[in-house]
Amino acid sequence: MKQYRDHYFKRAKKENYPARSVYKLQELNKRFNILQKGQKILDLGAAPGSWTLFAAKKVGDKGHVLGVDIQSTETEFPANVTYLQADVFEDSPELLGAMEPHLPFDLIISDMAPKTTGVKFTDQARSLELCERARDLLPRRLKQGGNFVVKIFEGPDVKEYRESLNTIFSKVKIFKPKSSRAESKEIFVVGLGFQGGEG
């Protein structure tokens, strides 16, 4: 188990990514082909920046990634990235100003997780709340036909959450990356082909 963790940890260091989570996004992209040249992407809960860096590489010079997190990061980003330390759920002038040139986004990705307590049901409930808030941003932020990726902790509420996305996306898939730790309860819900409307 430790060896398994070390493999992704070491690989991330070697490839200059701040965290092993980058490989989850790589797997998601390989499976669903969500990252394209020239896209505008909003990355929720972006710190320390691995997803933002990988997405920036994929969208290229003509694309742009806006990474937002309540935490700061030491990561250095390329020119096609804006990193903002802010609460993505609060429409501050700074956040709205950073979003304005890129709206609506082609893709919104979220690797957000709550501060865990170790109490399974509490953690699941907090994870669900973050996912619901991310979903509620979509009508104002995601373009028609756009895609959405969100991390959620497995639990009884996942089914209902997925159903809420079924009403606003052409397809909704559940995916567990191989690079997630085996003991981890995280899975990813992928909404493809945004049709607009409320969740």
Rank of each mutant, 00 (worst) to 15 (best):
A134D: 09
S170C: 13
K173S: 13
E76V: 14
D157I: 08
D61P: 10
E183I: 08
K173R: 14
Q195A: 12
Q124I: 15
P18C: 10
K10L: 12
N29W: 12
F9D: 01
N166V: 11
G191Q: 01
E183R: 07
G191S: 10
G145P: 01
Q26K: 15
S92E: 04
E94D: 09
T82A: 04
A134E: 06
V68C: 00
L192N: 07
K13T: 04
T73W: 05
S180H: 09
K24W: 05
L53E: 01
G67N: 04
R141P: 00
M99S: 00
T75S: 13
Y23E: 09
L42G: 00
L96P: 01
F175Y: 15
A125G: 03
G63D: 00
G145T: 12
K40G: 04
I70Y: 05
S110K: 04
I108D: 02
P156T: 12
E100D: 13
E154K: 14
F153V: 07
A125Q: 11
I187M: 14
P48A: 11
G60Q: 05
D6W: 04
P104M: 02
K151M: 03
I34T: 06
D136W: 06
I108G: 02
V189D: 02
K178D: 15
R31F: 04
L28N: 03
L44V: 05
